[in-house]
């Protein structure tokens, strides 16, 4: 129970960066941390104590595996996460070239 709550705390740290920070790169870092927190929560939910990783190595071995379904979902989510992060950071590069700053409170002429 406490182990899930520590994942929620990691998520809230990322959300704090997105909400309260004014530097665009810090906001991107907050998004990354939120992704890690959610992935970690899924992997923790699927864990089974005393079980092994879900790979069949012998023909008639007992099927005492951890839950493979959250692992498959998280595998998809990790790869999507790096794509969205790359898109976010390319927008940051463009914004810096136009406004010469990363402070969101100084970027005011966002039109056209």
């Amino acid at each position: 129970m406490l182990i899930f709550i520590s994942c929620i705390i990691l998520f809230l740290i990322g959300l704090y960066a997105v909400v309260a920070k004014r530097n665009l790169l810090k906001i991107a870092i907050g998004f990354c941390i939120m992704e890690y927190a959610v992935n970690m929560l899924f992997a923790l939910i699927g864990f089974k104590s005393g079980a092994i990783d879900p790979v069949i190595t012998k023909v008639d071995m007992p099927h005492n595996f951890v839950d493979p379904l959250p692992q498959a979902l998280v595998l998809t989510a990790i790869v999507i996460g790096v794509g969205t992060t790359a898109l976010f950071l390319s927008f940051i590069v463009r914004i810096y070239e136009k406004f010469k700053t990363l402070d969101v409170s100084e970027i005011k002429k966002l039109k056209g």
Partner: peptide, 9 residues
């Protein structure tokens, strides 16, 4: 947590 595929990725 016994997830080697996730660790590699």
């Amino acid at each position: 947590l016994q997830a080697p595929d996730l660790a590699i990725v």
